[in-house]
Computed example of a mutant assay.
Amino acid sequence: MSNENFKQELITWRHYLHAHPESAFEEENTARFVAEKLLEMGYEIVTGIGKTGVVGTLKNGTGTGIIGIRADMDALNIHEKTDLPYASEYPGKMHACGHDGHVTTALGAAKLLADNKNFNGTVRFIFQPAEEHGEGALAMLKDGLLEKFPMDELYGLHNKPNLPEGEIHSKIGPIMASEDNFEIRIKGKGGHASTPNMGVDPLVTASEIILALQTIVSRNIDPIDQAVISCTEIHTDGAVNVIPTNVIITGDCRSYKPEVQSIIKERMQAISENICKSNGATCEFTFRNSFSPTVNWEECHLTAIQAATNILGKENVVDQAQQVMGSEDFGYFLNKIPGCYVFLGGKREGKGVYPLHHAQYDYNDDNLVRGAEFFAEIVRLKLPS
């Protein structure tokens, strides 16, 4: 198959997936599509790992090494506003994060390896559900992914529409942050807005807490480390002329180290409970980890950089990537086995950039072959024939 025909095939696959988005743990049609393509290529497949996950395995030669490539499959609950001929056919759902491109890229790499058989060992393709909620990787791990399908190393990528088209960026160590969600329930004593002295105003207490939480990053976290605390919602049971009894503050935190996560949790709880106590209110504080930090292993990073250089040229590879405070549940895999996660730039020269999770976002099709060749090159480097 010519390179142009290969590219057109990948584009056709990607546009089909884009038109048929499925959100977390609902990726049944996507999983069927993936399984059918892998079977056509000669892969052994297992479905239903982590509910809708798919694992494809191909062995070649006598090598004992096993390399994994992972792609996330889920879409978002966003109504698409692109007017593309392959726009989402499902109202309220779209591939606004490019997972349609990630799936297609991995399938492209699977096809290259199956067609050329230029590796000696075993390659596994992991198609994961429910990345957006941070639950898919854990679901696959709980289903025994690593025990049933052992791998020496695992690699993944995410498209980045703000980075130059065709560039791959990676770094040793933390590349994406953890995400921790919190909820602060404040109970005061409501009453008429004209007589605040007769109650305990939880809104005033909530305001003090929201401001005080911002001192944690500036005064409790080592300035060398990075962290973000964001209060994103506030709910009350009051009205325009009623002081509420209950206020709920929710939000999330981002950081790169477990010890920083612990400091944030401890200080948030202490601040919330003590401000409530000083104002005569009560407090219930909950803190839940949603995403582990994504921390690249050094040897795997070096492999990814070499593969990217071989495919894209040194001028299109950055080995000191700017880490981001966004989160990705690939980090749960890297807590268990060596691996590396990279960014693939998609910014088209002279064209506007829609960010990830935007209703007008669309994956850059020109990156499909690049990403597929990059993944295939990693396998060839680690499993030389």
Rank of each mutant, 00 (worst) to 15 (best):
S2L: 15
E4T: 11
F6C: 02
K7Y: 15
Q8N: 08
T12L: 15
T12V: 15
Y16K: 10
Y16Q: 08
Y16W: 15
E22V: 08
S23P: 01
E27Y: 10
A31S: 10
R32E: 14
F33C: 03
K37R: 13
L38K: 02
G42R: 07
E44V: 04
E44G: 05
G50S: 05
T52F: 14
T52Q: 07
G53Y: 13
K59V: 06
G61W: 06
G61H: 10
G63D: 06
I67L: 08
I69M: 10
I69Y: 02
A71V: 06
D74R: 04
N77Q: 10
E80C: 04
K81S: 12
S88T: 04
Y90W: 07
K93E: 13
A96N: 05
C97Y: 07
V103Y: 04
G108A: 08
A110F: 05
L112E: 09
N116G: 03
K117C: 13
N120Y: 07
N120A: 06
T122Q: 07
F125P: 00
E131Y: 02
E131C: 03
G136M: 06
A137H: 03
D143I: 09
F149R: 00
D152W: 03
H158K: 05
K160Q: 12
N162H: 13
N162T: 15
I168E: 00
I175N: 00
D180H: 03
F182H: 00
I184W: 01
I186H: 00
G190W: 02
H192W: 10
H192N: 06
T205E: 06
A212G: 04
A212T: 08
S218A: 14
N220Y: 09
I221C: 04
I224Y: 13
D225F: 15
V228D: 06
E233S: 11
I234R: 01
A239F: 07
V242G: 04
V242R: 03
T245D: 03
N246I: 10
N246T: 12
N246C: 11
V247K: 00
T250W: 04
G251P: 01
D252V: 07
C253N: 13
R254F: 08
R254S: 01
Y256K: 02
P258L: 14
Q261H: 09
Q261P: 00
I263E: 02
R267C: 02
I271Y: 00
I271P: 00
C276E: 02
C276A: 10
N279I: 02
F285Q: 06
N289Y: 12
S290V: 15
N296V: 09
W297E: 14
E299H: 14
H301F: 04
I305H: 09
T309I: 15
N310C: 09
I311Y: 02
V318L: 11
V318F: 05
D319Y: 05
Q320H: 11
A321K: 03
Q322S: 15
V324L: 14
V324F: 09
G326R: 07
S327W: 04
E328L: 12
C340R: 00
C340S: 10
Y341L: 10
F343L: 08
L344I: 12
G346L: 11
R348V: 14
Y354D: 10
H357V: 14
Q360R: 15
Y361Q: 08
R370H: 09
A372R: 01
E373N: 11
F374C: 05
F375W: 12
R380E: 13
